[in-house]
């Protein structure tokens, strides 16, 4: 494959936990993102999957330069992403955009759809001459499957799925190379989710987009993602192609996530070995020693508490997993 468009190395984002109003003192660190490395290649979809609170959204915010990283590097087309300032930063924003999770809060309720989708052109006037903007906005609405005549309507006059399409049109306006999708369908009805996922997939083909697709369950990203990275408590625990993850998941956490995806075939019900997770995700302010998953892991052994496993390919596996006992599942195939 060609050079990655986005390359992230050892990205760390800690949020200080403070006490006191006037004299703030730091009493701890929430390790929201703790050493994440990933590559995103042009035109592909990389799924980032994990439970709520594992740091997926923080990762998106840091990569969008909405919040500064604690440490680590990221390069966009070979240029240092976190070194960009002023005009270079503004110019870069044309290349990387975000679709946010909640379509009910991501659109300003007091602006018309035309204003919302046209705002990128106001901020980057060099992209389209003023006289051309309305046509461009209507084109975008058509591309995402909305009626271009609804340009004067307000967000509250649309349904959740339609609002998410407006959010996608806004992200698409500047013809970015990369779109970060921060759980774009998790706030939508299941019947609408498929429509929006199909739209994203069509747009990817049409515009050659690369998606960093964040989701909290593996089922949603299955048909969209070329590669998948599974996150747990701020770190990636397993990464591989979609096929490797879905058929030969070797980390116990990924296996647990996979066994929680509903099976459409009733005859398979009860025949596959369910891996159920016990307990809650530990606090990211005080993560367990060694392997972070060991407190909930069915395979946990004394070595797990002492030695954090590296994300690497092991003899029994064909793709990187951060587990001392990584091995393909002995599950009935869900195909």
């Amino acid at each position: 494959m060609s050079e990655p468009v986005l390359a992230v190395r050892d990205l760390v984002k800690h949020f200080p936990v403070t006490r006191g109003v006037v004299f703030r003192r730091t009493v701890g660190q929430v390790r929201a993102v703790d050493g994440v490395s990933l590559d995103l290649y042009p035109g592909e979809t990389l799924g980032v999957v994990g439970e709520s609170g594992c740091g997926k959204s923080t990762l998106a915010q840091v990569l969008m330069r909405l919040t500064p990283p604690t440490s680590g590097t990221a390069t966009f087309e070979g240029e240092d992403l976190f070194a960009k300032r002023g005009a270079a930063l503004t110019a870069w924003r044309r290349d990387m955009q975000i679709v946010l999770q909640d379509p009910y809060t991501s659109l300003n309720p007091r602006k018309t759809v035309g204003d919302i989708v046209g705002e990128p052109f106001d901020i980057h006037p060099e992209v389209a001459p003023k006289s051309d903007r309305q046509r461009r906005v209507q084109e975008l609405l058509e591309v995402v499957g909305l009626n271009p005549e609804h340009i004067r309507r307000y967000p509250h006059q649309f349904s959740g799925g339609q609002r998410q399409r407006i959010g996608i049109a806004r992200a698409l306006a500047l013809r970015p190379k990369v779109i970060v999708c921060d759980e774009p369908v998790s706030a939508l009805d299941v019947s609408i989710q498929a429509q929006v996922l199909n739209l994203l997939s069509d747009l990817q083909r049409e515009f050659g987009l690369a998606y960093l697709f964040i989701a909290h369950d593996l089922g949603v990203v299955r048909h969209l993602c070329d590669r998948v990275a599974v996150m747990y408590l701020g770190s990636i625990v397993e990464t591989g192609t979609a096929e490797e993850i879905y058929t030969r998941a070797s980390h116990p956490y990924t296996q647990a996530l996979l066994s929680s995806v509903p099976v459409p075939d009733p005859s398979l019900r009860g025949r596959r070995e369910a891996v159920r997770l016990e307990g809650d995700v530990p606090s990211p302010a005080d993560p367990p020693s060694g392997c972070r998953f060991r407190t909930r892991c069915p395979k946990a052994a004394p070595v797990c508490a002492e030695d954090p496993p590296a994300l690497e390919v092991r003899p029994s596996t064909d793709h990187p997993a951060a587990c001392h006992f990584a091995e393909p599942p002995h599950l009935v195939r869900v195909e």
Partner: peptide, 19 residues
């Protein structure tokens, strides 16, 4: 989130506050 989206688009503080 709409403020987040505007910042991601590169909107400056005056635009964010004013618009």
């Amino acid at each position: 989130d709409y403020v987040k989206a505007a910042r991601a688009l590169g909107a400056g503080p005056w635009r964010i506050v004013g618009r």
